[in-house]
């Protein structure tokens, strides 16, 4: 699942450093992702994993790292690892 997340992040987060240079725990906001880019990332993750983030999960910390996104997807359930 992490690899799929990393692919979506690389396409939509508008990072200022290549995703290959970031670990799964790296802070995406510190790597250049803006608040607005995090919206695109959220929509792209929803599309890729066929889920919809509920309001309770739409917070900065959810999209802070590859790992935090994975945790949110697992919390949503029904996503194959």
């Amino acid at each position: 699942m992490k690899e799929r997340i990393r692919t979506v992040v690389s396409e939509h987060a508008r990072l200022s450093v290549p995703i290959e240079e970031l670990g799964d725990e790296s802070d995406l906001f510190q790597a250049g992702m803006t608040s607005h880019a995090s919206v695109s990332l959220m929509l792209a993750i929803e599309e890729a994993f066929e889920v919809e983030f509920p309001e309770a999960l739409i917070r900065r910390s959810t999209f802070q790292s590859v790992t935090s996104i994975e945790h949110a997807l697992l919390e949503l359930g029904g996503v194959a690892a």
């Binding site: 695109s40 929509l43 792209a44």
Partner: peptide
Amino acid sequence: VDIAGVVRSVQRFGDRY
């Protein structure tokens, strides 16, 4: 906010965005 980012989001995600 970068206006080009909004253009991209509208073009890519449309009404969902």
